[in-house]
Simulated assay, not measured.
Amino acid sequence: MIRSRLLRSASLLAVAALACAGAVSAPAGPASAARAATAERAVTTAYTCTTTAGGRTTTYTGRITLDVALPRSVGTGDRVAARRVSGSVVVPDEVADMLRQFGVDAVSADITSSAARFGPANIPVRAFSVPRTRIPADGPFTLRAATRTRAFTAPAQPGRYRVLVPTRVTPAITAFSGSSSFGPIVSQCRPARAGTSLGTVRVTR
């Protein structure tokens, strides 16, 4: 129970950060500056995660609502610069209490993912880490992480293209209790629905 609750919380953070990573990059260079206006969009993304630990397999669905800034438009073939992205999730009282009950006083995670998609283009996402975060004596707490996308090239043909979330997110979570730790425990997470989109971006000549 403790492991499935812990993994669910940390994996929600992975979903938040990685989904944002596929969405908030803005075009680079003066030729693209006029087209780089962004629009805030709110979406709810669900990932189904499977974890095997101690001979037991746990499957769960994590849902998170994201406010993301998508560029309204980019030019065909524009080089899109790397952009710092971040994500966070508040671990609620009920989960925090469960962790404290079992003596867990801190958690961390290392996270990798497949690329996000922008039409035919890949948006590579760098591996990143949730730093060791202490769990307070009472109340909820927040996990945070940051990473960067890699630069990529916009599609060569004009049109409207969907920005799709990564099809694979792999968080490896470690829990700490005093000087002891257990993990990493690895989850394999995939979108609960194929083709989950964060919105669309117009590509113009």
Rank of each mutant, 00 (worst) to 15 (best):
76 T>Y: 06
42 A>N: 09
205 R>E: 15
109 A>H: 01
34 A>K: 14
140 P>T: 09
116 A>P: 06
107 V>N: 00
142 T>Y: 01
197 S>T: 10
96 A>F: 11
23 A>R: 04
64 I>F: 06
139 G>W: 09
78 D>Y: 03
152 F>S: 01
56 R>E: 12
11 S>Q: 05
25 S>E: 09
195 G>I: 05
178 G>Y: 12
81 A>V: 01
48 T>E: 07
94 E>N: 10
132 R>K: 14
85 V>P: 03
197 S>V: 02
106 A>E: 08
158 P>H: 10
158 P>F: 11
99 L>E: 13
165 V>R: 00
124 P>I: 01
9 S>L: 08
122 N>E: 13
114 S>W: 03
205 R>I: 10
181 S>V: 07
97 D>N: 15
183 G>Y: 01
195 G>T: 01
7 L>I: 13
174 T>P: 00
149 T>D: 11
58 T>Q: 11
62 G>R: 02
5 R>D: 12
73 S>N: 10
127 A>H: 00
138 D>T: 14
27 P>R: 14
71 P>V: 02
2 I>C: 06
119 G>A: 09
24 V>K: 04
197 S>E: 00
175 A>P: 00
183 G>E: 02
183 G>T: 00
164 L>S: 07
51 T>A: 14
191 P>E: 06
57 T>G: 12
136 P>E: 06
77 G>S: 10
32 S>Q: 15
167 T>D: 12
133 T>F: 03
117 R>Q: 13
8 R>W: 12
8 R>N: 13
195 G>C: 02
35 R>D: 12
139 G>P: 07
178 G>M: 11
125 V>L: 13
56 R>Y: 09
165 V>G: 08
148 R>F: 04
198 L>G: 03
182 F>W: 15
16 A>W: 02
116 A>W: 08
59 T>M: 10
92 P>I: 06
22 G>F: 05
67 D>S: 14
122 N>A: 15
103 G>H: 12
145 A>V: 05
139 G>L: 08
62 G>F: 06
119 G>P: 10
136 P>A: 01
201 V>E: 05
102 F>A: 12
18 L>P: 00
71 P>Q: 00
114 S>K: 04
29 G>R: 11
91 V>E: 02
82 A>Q: 15
162 R>D: 12
30 P>Y: 11
72 R>N: 14
72 R>I: 07
146 A>Q: 07
23 A>P: 08
157 Q>E: 13
194 A>W: 04
85 V>R: 04
114 S>E: 11
40 E>W: 00
31 A>E: 10
68 V>A: 07
28 A>S: 15
154 A>I: 06
28 A>T: 10
77 G>W: 05
169 V>F: 04
136 P>D: 02
147 T>E: 00
147 T>L: 04
37 A>M: 13
49 C>K: 10
159 G>F: 11
24 V>S: 00
120 P>F: 11
46 A>C: 03
17 A>C: 09
40 E>P: 04
21 A>M: 04
160 R>K: 13
190 R>Q: 13
181 S>C: 01
92 P>D: 15
20 C>V: 09
72 R>A: 12
1 M>Q: 15
151 A>T: 05
114 S>C: 02
60 Y>C: 05
70 L>Q: 05
14 A>H: 08
17 A>G: 07
